[in-house]
Design a binder for these strands. Structure first.
Lengths: 154, 154
DNA sequence: CGGCATTAGTTTGAGGTCAAACAATTTAAC
DNA sequence: GTTAAATTGTTTGACCTCAAACTAATGCCG
């Protein structure tokens, strides 16, 4: 009748990277569920937010900011443009680039999404005391800032 | 000469979820680089570790433990089996399931990988004082433990 | 026992992601 | 100023992931 032998994590037990991956999956799961009615993923939300905060930015700038390959961004923007949330406008000064802007519909939707995302963050982190939330944010930022100096060969 | 206007993060600025995603990307990047000579991804490493720690487990058990869809696991195990690192052995007691085990080569490789992963963790978290690393692990675990109680409709 | 729901592994299809190759444009070098 | 190098957006191909449908086997329930 023992239904949960519950596997051993073995070596994974002590790895912060593994813990972070699990947290990421839980987070994505809740986000996805909350945004399902709008068909918005974390990546799409990030793109909308950054375009909103930096109107006129280029696809390369956006791609770097959300850590997405520029080729991946093409389909994502196609999608958002098809939904009339975003507009690609050829730059007058550099004909290689597009200037990205939210449409009025895009701004309207983003407003709703922001409220949902706040609720999502509250669900996922609201149980933690404020100082621990701040600590978590600080530590995560420190990890992101770590750059690989040098890679060991074979 | 200002080469870095450096976009505003806007609404993303205050989101722990966004910070966590950036940390995850940085982590994955360093991991991937360190393991490139062995063609091992975090997911593959996780699978090898769990099989090592729980010899004879089934594909479903493994899939749940590493949060992977069972259909995804099929190709992953095909790959590891083709490399003679893992063995699928049909269970005698339940003919639906396979018992998973590492081969001697698998155990040998995993040993090397563990050392690399330790170096990787040291690179990414080593700069943090030990108590902060522990705190980070604890907080991440708390986030993973958050289960969506209920989802708001439209 | 006998039939039906459940479970395990697999296959297939849709979508997200990166890397490499390409054309158009801009920048740098001479 | 002309030519070579770098940059931007795009397309294509490979891979990973999930979800749904399928098959074989087990468990349940009368």
């Amino acid at each position: 009748m023992n239904k949960k032998p519950s596997l051993s994590l073995g070596f994974l037990e002590g790895l912060i990277g593994f813990r972070l991956r699990l947290a990421q999956i839980a987070l994505f799961d809740d986000f996805e569920r909350a945004m399902r009615p709008f068909d918005i993923t974390p990546t799409r939300f990030g793109a909308l937010s950054l375009i909103d905060a930096n109107p006129g930015l280029s696809q390369m700038q956006l791609a770097k900011a959300i850590r997405l390959d520029r080729s991946t961004l093409v389909a994502l923007l196609d999608h958002l443009e098809k939904r009339s949330l975003v507009q690609r406008r050829p730059s007058a000064t550099d004909k290689r680039t597009n200037e990205l802007r939210l449409t009025p519909e895009g701004r309207l939707l983003l407003g709703k999404l922001k409220r949902r995302v706040q609720e999502h963050e509250k669900r996922m982190f609201g149980k933690l005391p404020a100082d621990e939330r701040a600590q978590l944010a600080r530590l995560l930022e420190a990890v992101s800032a770590m750059k690989t100096k040098q890679v060991i060969e074979i």
